[in-house]
Structures are given as structure tokens and as C-alpha cells.
């Protein structure tokens, strides 16, 4: 949608890119422009690293694996939440310009580093936490991989808590108590986990004013999830489960 292929020739002859980077602490700040050398092949993370290393060491940002496994480098790139290590500059460059900002819907610590505290607090609040039903002295629970519940859980468990979905979600922006797509997605996987013992608490947790019923199915979460997960579908599952629970329907 924002690929700039029409200007590819222009891009390949360009020597520098104009990169706007959010600078500031907490609520205050502004975009600062940098002229970054264009390489044949570079990611947005390469761009940010170039700014911080030879150009401006005061730039704060997060990354770890730089190969698309950890989710630490998630930022807003031209207004869309992405993993910067897996975003090729040529795919998002707009007439030689880039805009890089910290993840939306989260408080900013400094520059490109967002405060993930509320994201993880909501994870716990949604009971997206495993509650064992057995001790080490009990027999191991046999889990049949063909069980529909296991299939449902497995389809959603690859979440690495990068908060891209949380940044994309307008229901999160509109409701500060909304638990968000990631936490609810995880709650859904645990709801389907045969080994878990806290389903009653979990359904309560996702039925309140911040619960799954705030989702408007805009599907921004699944649109942007770099792991191709589908929190909207998980949340739909939670909606069904909470209704069944409310109406006293035994599963």
C-alpha cells in the first residue's frame, strides 16, 4: 500500500535519504531530520543504527536479535507498526523520505524506546498466564495434537510480545482499559490448553470493561502481525466462550 516501486529508479540513484526520527522524553518531543546514506540493501534498523553510531549517539532505541525473532525492534515506520530489522528500506521509502517513531499506544521513555509496562500488565490482567492443574508427582497430561482445541491453541501461540498489534489497534487507542489483541490472543490459547486450570478466572478477566467485547474486528492486528497471527479470530473465540459461560452453557 505504501510501496514506492514507481520511484525505484529514483531510489537507486539516490545517495542519501531524508529520515525523520522522533526525539524526546515522555510526552514532549519533535521529529528530527537526518540525512542517511542510502545503501543497496538496508533495513530500517540499519538506518537507525547508522544514525546512532556515526551521527548522533544520544539516540535511544531498542533491538536485540536483528533477525526477526525477538520483536524488540518494533517501531512506527511511515505511520505503520513494523519490525525494523525485517523492513527493507526500498519497500517503504517514500520519495526518498522515511519517518520513524516509537510504537503507538504506549508511553514513550525516550526517542524510539516505548514503555512496555502496560502491555505486560494487561497480559497478566487478561489471565494470559498459565495456571497448572497438576503437580510434578502427577502423570504427564497426554495432549493429542489432532484435538481441535490443541489446533486452535497452536495456531495462536507464536506470539513473541512485540506489541506491533497493540500499536496498530484503534480499540486500544480508544479505551485505555482495553486489554489489547496480544493479551487476549494469549488468553485464548490458554483457554484451549487442556493442562490449564484457570478458565473460569480467565473468562471473567476477559468479560469486563477492558475485555474482548471491545474489539471491533478492524483486523489491524492480523494485518500487521509479523508472525502472521490472527488475534481477531482468537478474540472472536473469546466472545463465543464468554457468551457460553454467561448463558451457563456447559462445553
Amino acid at each position: 500500500m505504501t510501496t514506492d516501486f514507481a520511484n525505484t529508479d529514483e531510489n537507486s540513484t539516490r545517495t542519501h535519504m531524508s529520515v525523520s526520527v522522533w526525539r524526546g522524553e515522555g510526552d514532549s518531543g519533535a521529529f528530527q531530520q537526518f540525512q542517511v546514506p542510502a545503501q543497496e540493501s538496508q533495513t530500517i534498523l540499519d538506518v537507525v543504527a547508522w544514525i546512532q553510531q556515526p551521527s548522533d549517539p544520544t539516540l535511544s532505541y531498542r533491538y536485540a536479535c536483528r533477525v526477526g525473532m525477538c520483536g524488540s525492534c518494533a517501531m512506527m515506520v511511515n505511520g505503520k507498526p513494523r519490525w525494523t530489522c525485517r523492513t527493507h528500506v526500498k519497500k517503504v521509502l517514500q520519495q526518498g523520505r522515511l519517518e520513524i517513531a516509537p510504537l503507538r499506544n504506549l508511553p514513550v521513555i525516550k526517542d524510539l524506546a516505548a514503555d512496555m509496562t502496560e502491555f505486560f500488565d494487561k497480559w497478566v490482567k487478561a489471565e494470559a498466564v498459565f495456571h497448572p492443574s497438576k503437580t510434578r508427582d502427577d502423570a504427564i497430561e497426554p495432549i493429542n495434537p489432532a484435538n481441535p482445541k490443541r489446533i486452535a491453541a497452536s495456531a495462536a501461540i507464536e506470539c513473541i510480545n512485540c506489541a506491533v498489534c497493540y500499536a496498530a489497534c484503534d480499540a486500544v487507542s480508544a479505551n485505555s482499559e482495553y486489554l489489547g489483541p496480544a493479551a487476549l490472543n494469549r488468553a485464548w490459547t490458554l483457554l484451549n490448553d487442556e493442562r490449564d486450570s484457570a478458565n473460569s478466572e480467565r473468562l471473567q478477566a476477559v468479560s469486563g470493561v477492558g475485555g474482548c467485547h471491545n474489539c471491533h474486528s478492524q483486523q489491524g492486528c492480523m494485518n500487521y502481525c509479523p508472525n502472521e497471527l490472527n488475534p481477531t479470530a482468537s478474540i472472536a473465540g473469546l466472545k463465543r466462550a464468554t457468551l457460553k459461560h454467561l448463558l451457563g452453557w456447559r462445553d
Binding site: D170, S217, Q218
Partner: peptide, 11 residues
Amino acid sequence: PHRSHPLWYAF
């Protein structure tokens, strides 16, 4: 920009 996909417009 993050809203420019069809299902957001449907919403």
C-alpha cells in the same frame, strides 16, 4: 497510515 487497509474502512 496504519488504518489504510480494507477492513478498517469496513469498520
